[in-house]
Design a protein around this nucleic acid. Structure first.
Lengths: 235, 235
DNA sequence: TTTGTCTATATGTCTGACAAACTGACATCC
DNA sequence: GGATGTCAGTTTGTCAGACATATAGACAAA
């Protein structure tokens, strides 16, 4: 009934404005922003606030700052890929299935590529993710975090930032649903076994096997999702 | 051979330290960080630098700041820690190659799916896109718009909104580069022929052929990109 | 052409100060 | 007693002004 009101930081407002200007095309990638002092003046704020905004934008990958070169708008940034897609937050029923389909494609490609590129460090990381899930099971936790961690480690092994970012973002959007599938009794154990098998395939650089395994894994997830869907009816 | 040296911002060092402390488990999600003044003292830096670091961490979703509640480490952030820590921001150049790779994967998947799902309407649309490109050629236009149109129509034929959206935004980010490849003498004609072949495969619902053709098409594009790159050196 | 030097510029950093908002305790009124 | 003001302490948010430092560009010298 009542809208939650709260003060909005100046630095946030500045960052938001710049993000919007980028989306609307009034600021173009590759261009240079005015100097911090000029921005401060134009926004009617202090340089410190402008700098905080730029820090945020920088860590989002939208801008790049150089000692004397000013602040430039980056050409290729993950956020710009995602901002359009992530936009429909409502997740219609139809859109949700599109999302599931896109995720399956993405994950399959990721695993295939990862099985070619994974080095010792990646494999160690994945191993650790498996341990975390094992721990989740014995501690009786739901395991969604370790599930996400595993898939994130897979994506990282491709060494491709765009794919990694996409995986993270799409995986995050489906977090709730995945959590529900993991609640099914015994599912977490199964999941761990499937993950382990995928890991083995990766470790032996068997792309074809890895591909088959992740496909089976995702098919399993989808199956459970469908079952849950029939019972409850609504995401 | 020579390592690239450059000054590392204090705020970056602080942010990195905090990220690592999180990874090592010395800082735990849900905990509260010391106050900004205390942090400044402990790191031997000013509060302004600490605040810039916190701004970055906040926009990564690692911490949450409240007016009097101090700064708390967010619970659900494991995935973000990982990718950001292990793979420091890539430069535009590297990220561009990631983008090219991601696009190729995406387009291949799209064409494969489209060849299964394209109906009469989709095919007509694609046909029209081909005509537009033919017109571009005879009018001596650069053809980038009709190129985009063609790929957009392909994506639409998958009936998957997520894939369509991804294709659009990635394609859009690469627009300038694609435009440059089309400027190569005779390239637009080749491009049209390749598009035509893909269309034929789609029309006959030959997924395997379509896949091979789009792969060849994208390989050709990449080849030209590389050549242009060697000549000019800088996007 | 390369190298050295200088200067202007923009970011990076620090200091000290005040404003604003939240917390908790205490006082006040019905 | 319980709801409502009031106040002080704490912490983040914001500001202004200063200096340090790295970079680019111009220009001179070898």
């Amino acid at each position: 009934m009542f809208q939650n009101v709260k003060s909005i930081r100046i630095s946030d407002q500045i960052a938001t404005q710049i993000r919007h200007l980028l989306l609307e095309g009034k600021l173009k990638p590759g261009e240079r922003l005015p100097t911090e002092s000029e921005l401060a003046e134009k926004f009617g704020a202090s340089r410190a606030s402008v700098r905080e905004a730029l820090s945020a934008l920088e860590s989002e990958g939208l801008v790049e700052r150089r000692k004397n070169g000013g602040t430039i708008l980056r050409r290729f940034s993950l956020n710009r890929v995602l901002s359009d897609v992530e936009f429909p937050r409502k997740l219609d029923r139809e859109l949700f299935f599109d999302l599931v389909e896109a995720r399956e494609m993405l994950e399959i490609q990721i695993v295939e590529l990862a099985s070619k590129r994974a080095d010792r460090i990646d494999l160690n990381r994945i191993e650790r993710a498996l341990e975390v899930m094992q721990e989740d099971i014995s501690m009786n936790r739901n395991g969604i975090e370790s599930d996400i961690l595993f898939h994130q480690c897979l994506a990282a092994a491709t060494k491709n930032q765009i794919l990694t970012g996409l995986s993270r973002s799409i995986g995050h959007m489906m977090q709730k649903t995945r959590a529900r599938t993991l609640e099914v009794p015994g599912r977490l154990d199964e999941c761990l076994q499937e993950h382990r098998a995928i890991y083995e395939a990766l470790a032996s650089h068997d792309a074809e096997l890895a591909r088959r395994l992740i496909k089976a894994h995702l098919a399993q997830v989808r199956l459970i999702m469908d079952e849950l869907d029939l019972e409850k009816g609504e995401p």
